[in-house]
Computed example of a mutant assay.
Amino acid sequence: MDFPTTTPELAIEARGLVKRFDETLAVDGVDLAVPRGSITGILGPNGAGKTTTLRMLLGIIDPDEGYRRVLGHDNPRDVARLIGYLPEERGLYPSMKAYDAIGYMGALRGLPLKEARNRGRALLEEQGLGHAADRQIRQLSKGMAQIVQLLGTLVHEPQLVVLDEPFSGLDAINQGKLEVLIRGLADRGVTVIFSTHVIAHAERLCEGIAIIAGGKVPFAGRVDEARDRIPAQVRLETSADAGPWTAALPASTRKVGQFRFFPLPESGIEPLLKALIEGNAGIRSLSIERAGLHDAFVAIAGEAAAARLVTDAGQDEEQAA
């Protein structure tokens, strides 16, 4: 297959990725473009095809159809030492000390073992975990062990970091630490792509997202573009309950208590404001609220997929408790 010309500003390019396992179509025609130095989220419920997509991008498994290019290479395995990968299935040797576990993972990526161990200690200190450096993995809390494995993913200073459900099982404090760490990587020019079923993480962290459901990607682009799929909503409160000004309100206006809600008119807010003022509506409050990513996800992927996201997030909270 002839691949298109390399796009230097992209860390990851994928077109038409398809993967079948026996009779199951796990991924069905995924397209993806991840700019260098960006944070991109693959957002979808469990079983949507996120992990399979990431594994194809990394060359762990090959697609049945389509192509992918990572850091300018058609074979992702050629640049494995430039990539940090945190799999969904966590795995550390329980008898290893924390700093040694990080060093071991760095050595697997080409670092001299001594240097990797020294970096491991330094990374633990940076994360406020220097006191745990000489503890065995079995002596650490689940959250601390996950942070150790994440640091092992970063110890060789990769150009691209791929995280599969990195927030799963972490409590709120460690989730916050991980968000800070991810932002710090992007600030240094590292490209980060992570999968998640928690909309809040994608909304806070990501410049771009790919929404995946049923192995398909119905949307891939900037977060603000996804939110713009739904018109901004206007919330209006007036002292007058009726008058000629009501004719300027959209037909879809709904009243809840003292407030009226309706989509922002295509003509903008100014003509409506003029009608309200001239009609003596008595504006008490007026606000324009952009749709959140959750509303955009529902509009793009459907309510069933959104409900599964909520269920998955609830199960995560139970595991972290």
Score class of each variant (00 low, 15 high):
Thr191Met: 02
Pro112Gly: 06
Arg121Leu: 14
Ile39Ser: 04
Thr5Gly: 05
Asn174Leu: 04
Val198Ser: 10
Thr238Asp: 04
Pro45His: 08
Leu178Glu: 02
Ser141Gly: 05
Arg109Glu: 07
Val155Glu: 02
Gly47Ala: 03
Val192Ala: 04
Phe262Gly: 01
Leu151Ser: 11
Arg222Trp: 10
Ser285Met: 04
Leu124Asp: 03
Ala210Val: 12
Ser287Gly: 08
Ala281Ile: 02
Glu157Lys: 12
Leu58Phe: 07
Leu178Lys: 07
Lys216His: 13
Ala304Glu: 15
Glu270Ile: 11
Glu318Asn: 10
Leu185Phe: 12
Leu309Phe: 13
Glu225Trp: 02
Leu205Arg: 09
Leu43Arg: 13
Ala14Cys: 09
Ala226Trp: 03
Asn75Gln: 14
Ile102Gln: 10
Ser95His: 14
Val148Glu: 03
Arg260Phe: 10
Val162Gly: 01
Gly152Cys: 09
Ala132Asn: 08
Gly128Leu: 06
Ser168Asp: 13
Ala133Tyr: 10
Ala186Gly: 05
Asp100Cys: 01
Asp64Tyr: 07
Arg81Tyr: 03
Ile230Pro: 00
Glu125His: 15
Arg81Met: 10
Gln315Thr: 12
Ala186Val: 07
Glu203Cys: 06
Ala213Ile: 12
Ile283Ala: 10
His197Met: 09
Gly143Ala: 04
Ala107Ser: 13
Tyr93Val: 15
Gly152Ser: 10
Glu157Tyr: 08
Asp64Leu: 01
Ala220Trp: 04
Val70Asp: 02
Gln315Glu: 15
Arg15Ala: 06
Val18Leu: 13
Ala98Val: 11
Ile137Val: 15
Ser141Val: 03
Leu57Trp: 06
Glu266Met: 12
Gly268Cys: 10
Ser239Asn: 12
Ala296Cys: 06
Glu225Leu: 11
Gly214Ala: 05
Arg135Asp: 09
Ile182Gln: 04
Ile173Gly: 00
Val155Cys: 07
Leu273Glu: 00
Asp164Gly: 06
Ala116Lys: 09
Pro87Thr: 10
Ile212Val: 15
Leu160Val: 05
Val192Arg: 01
Glu266Gln: 14
Glu318Pro: 12
Phe262Val: 02
Ile211Pro: 04
Gly184Gln: 13
Arg36Phe: 05
Glu65Thr: 03
Gly44Ser: 05
Arg55Ile: 12
Asp312Tyr: 08
Val162Cys: 01
Gly59Leu: 09
Ile211Asp: 03
Gly184Pro: 06
Asp31Met: 03
Ile60Asn: 08
Ser195Asn: 12
Leu140Arg: 01
Ala305Tyr: 09
Leu71Arg: 08
Leu129Thr: 07
Gln127His: 13
Gly215Tyr: 09
Leu111Ile: 07
Leu163Trp: 10
Glu278Cys: 05
Glu9Val: 02
Pro263Ile: 03
Val162Pro: 03
Lys114Leu: 09
Thr153Val: 11
Thr24Ser: 10
Ala291Asn: 11
Ala307Thr: 13
Val198Phe: 00
Lys142Asn: 01
Pro94Asn: 07
Ile42Met: 15
Gly47Tyr: 02
Ala122Tyr: 11
